[in-house]
Design a protein around this nucleic acid. Structure first.
Lengths: 117, 117
DNA sequence: GCAAGTACCTACTATTTTGTAGGTGTCAAA
DNA sequence: TTTGACACCTACAAAATAGTAGGTACTTGC
C-alpha cells in the first residue's frame, strides 16, 4: 500500500474543500437561505472582502454553492447551497458540536486563534 | 452579535486541532491500536519525520493522544487515542465518507493536492 | 569500528494562505 | 455633484504551514 492515506480515506478531499478560514461559517449561513455577499460580510464581521469572495468562488467551483446573478444593475447576486453542500454541512454539524462541547479544553496556543472577537 | 462565528459554532476549535496535513490519518491509525512513531512513518510514506513528531506533540497537547514512554533504551514510545480523540474520530468518519463519495468531483486544482502518491 | 535503528531536536527554506490597500463601473440618494 | 452602495478585481506584504538537511544520545548487529 503505497497510496497516500488522506486521499484514500476521504479526509483529503473533504479538507481541501472546507479548509479556508470562513468556509464552514459561509456554508452554515447559506444553508438557511440564499445570501448576498454584502449580507455575509455583515454577518461575519471579521472576514475581509477579498477572502469572502475568494471563498465563495472556490465553493462554487467545488459545487458546494450556487451563484445566482439577478442580472440587475447595480449588481445583485445570491449564493445558495447545493445538495452537495447540504450533505457536507450535515456531516460537519457533529464536528461542530464536538468542537463546541470541548472548546474549553482546546484553548492551546494556536497562532490563528488570536482572532479577537 | 459581534462574536466570531467559527468560534461560536464550534468549527473553529475543531479545525484548529485537526488541521494539519496528517492529523486525521494519525488519529485513524492510532485508534485501532497504539502506534510507535517509526511505525507511523512506515504506514504514511509521504509524511516527513518532522511533521509527524510535530503533529504528535500537538495532538498530545490537545488531549487527542496519549504518549506512553516505556523508559527503555533504545527509546520506545507509543501513542494511543484518548476518549476525546476517539470522539473526534467518530465525528470525522462521516466527513471522510463524504469526501470519499464525492472525491471524483472534488478534483479542482488545489495546491496541496499535488502530492503524487 | 561502523552502520543502522530508536525518538527526538534545531536552523533554514519554500510553499500556501491570509491580510492590506488600492482599483473597476454603474446607479441612487443627499 | 459628491457620496455611498453594489459586486467584484489586482498587486503586494505578512503570516502560517510544511519541507530539507543537519544534529543529539544511546544500543544492537555486522
Amino acid at each position: 500500500m503505497a497510496t497516500n492515506l488522506p486521499e484514500a480515506c476521504g479526509l483529503g478531499p473533504a479538507f481541501r474543500v472546507i479548509n479556508g478560514k470562513w468556509k464552514g461559517t459561509i456554508l452554515w449561513l447559506c444553508r438557511k437561505q440564499p445570501r448576498r455577499p454584502g449580507e455575509l460580510r455583515r454577518l461575519i464581521p471579521d472576514v475581509s472582502e477579498k477572502m469572502l469572495i475568494q471563498h465563495l468562488r472556490e465553493m462554487v467551483a467545488d459545487g458546494l454553492l450556487d451563484r445566482h446573478d439577478f442580472g440587475e444593475i447595480p449588481p445583485r447576486v445570491a449564493y445558495s447551497v447545493t445538495d452537495l453542500g447540504r450533505e457536507l454541512d450535515d456531516v460537519l454539524t457533529p464536528l461542530a458540536h464536538w468542537g463546541l462541547k470541548h472548546a474549553a479544553r482546546l484553548t492551546r496556543d494556536h497562532p490563528m486563534s488570536l482572532v479577537k472577537a
